[in-house]
């Protein structure tokens, strides 16, 4: 019996795909903000670039076979493998220097990352759209004989 608590925003039908993709969208947006900041500070002395590796974080969170937590009544029971929500880590690369002014922003790398991240975001947004279309099909056509 499913309780309300167990139903993710995606519902039973599309499992937690919508939930996963929307987390990916959030991560990509967050990363885009950091990359914009790097590019805005391309000429700021002593500035060190900031980045976030959210894809690995997402993979760690959703990579397991089961994403549901299990209730246990005995210590020997196997617990569900879902881990607690881990916030995105933002590694600050503090040691390196790219130029004499101790700034380590490489504009070419940053632009490449912005382009990649933008395409990634657009791909995810298309994917989530497809998920909604599937959901709509189920709602519209499910009752027909």
């Amino acid at each position: 019996m499913l309780t309300y608590k167990n139903i993710t925003p995606g519902g039973v039908v599309v499992s937690n795909n919508i939930n996963l993709i929307s987390q990916g969208l959030d991560g990509a947006l967050n990363r885009h903000k950091m990359l914009s900041n790097n590019i805005a500070n391309v000429d700021t002395p002593n500035y060190k670039r900031k980045d976030v590796d959210f894809i690995t974080a997402l993979r760690n969170q959703f990579g397991q076979k089961s994403s549901l937590s299990l209730a246990t009544t005995d210590n020997n029971h196997i617990v569900g493998s879902k881990k607690a929500n881990k916030s995105f880590e933002s590694p600050f690369l503090k040691n390196t220097s790219y130029r004499n002014d101790k700034n380590n922003v490489d504009i070419d790398v940053e632009m490449g990352e912005v382009a990649k991240n933008g395409i990634y975001y657009n791909t995810l947004s298309r994917q989530i759209n497809t998920q909604f279309i599937i959901l709509k099909d189920v709602i519209n056509k499910g009752g027909r004989q």
Binding site: S36, V42, E110, N129
Partner: peptide, 19 residues
């Protein structure tokens, strides 16, 4: 470079509107 990033931001926002 900043203009390019701004355009990417804009495209991302527009894509989000299409969801």
């Amino acid at each position: 470079a900043n203009v390019t990033v701004l355009n990417t931001s804009k495209n991302m926002a527009l894509k989000a509107l299409e969801i």
